[in-house]
């Protein structure tokens, strides 16, 4: 079965009784004021926080999958990335040809000291680290928040190719509704523990436009 990520009567610290399905290749957007718990919602989907109700990927309940395996499939890109080795390369088993360049780095980047990365570099590299694991679901928490315009284009282009080739289900949290409209359908507003549709006409997604960004 490949019915993507499915939530039934799903409750965690920030949402109550959510029913939601995100099929492979689909992206849904989540926006809303700060502090309503968008990040907490994503954390619960990655099984990092307790939740109640039903959570399944392709028909397999999260509770029946070992947690580390679940998190490799349902991968969370946090707003603040974590680095524990001294060098960038210590966090990568191997990097597919050309991916570093796609995000504006050269091969030298793997030798860089993590402590000297800018926040934007961290963000791009952490996305790379996540995509290499080829997750089935991407939980993106403000993935381009610290990036300049040029790097936003780079990140979206890489994500777009990944979306075409791997067809992940995507949940995208952002304050930038213009960006969400480019990528996501539908878009929800998280407020008062509910997901409500954002009242705006949905446009075509990059996928339908042939993956160009």
């Amino acid at each position: 079965m490949s019915d993507g990520l499915k939530l039934k009567n799903f409750s965690c610290r920030s949402v109550k009784a959510v029913d939601l399905q995100v099929v492979p290749g689909q992206a849904i957007g989540i926006t809303g004021p700060s502090g309503t718990g968008k990040s907490l919602f994503l954390r619960a989907l990655a099984d990092l926080d307790p939740y109640e109700g039903h959570l399944a990927l392709d028909g397999e309940a999260a509770a029946h999958v070992p947690a580390p395996q679940w998190r490799r499939k349902v991968a969370l890109l946090p707003a603040e990335s974590a680095w524990w080795e001294d060098t960038v390369g210590g966090h990568f088993a191997q990097v597919p040809q050309g991916w570093l360049q796609r995000l504006g780095f050269d091969e030298q980047a793997l030798q860089w000291q993590v402590s000297r990365l800018s926040s934007g570099e961290r963000q791009r590299l952490s996305l790379l680290r996540l995509l290499i694991q080829q997750p089935r679901v991407l939980l993106l928490d403000e993935p381009t928040a610290n990036l300049d315009a040029e790097n936003i284009v780079r990140v979206e282009s890489l994500l777009s190719d990944f979306r075409v080739s791997q067809r992940p289900a995507i949940l995208w949290v952002s304050h930038d509704t213009e960006q969400l409209k480019r990528w996501c359908d539908p878009i929800f507003v998280l407020a008062e523990q509910r997901l409500r549709p954002l009242n705006a006409p949905s446009r075509k997604t990059p996928l339908q436009q042939g993956g160009a960004a």
Partner: peptide, 13 residues
């Protein structure tokens, strides 16, 4: 904690 959870997020035990 951020670091530990960052590792968990990437599927580490």
């Amino acid at each position: 904690r951020t670091l530990i959870e960052g590792r968990l997020m990437l599927g580490q035990s």
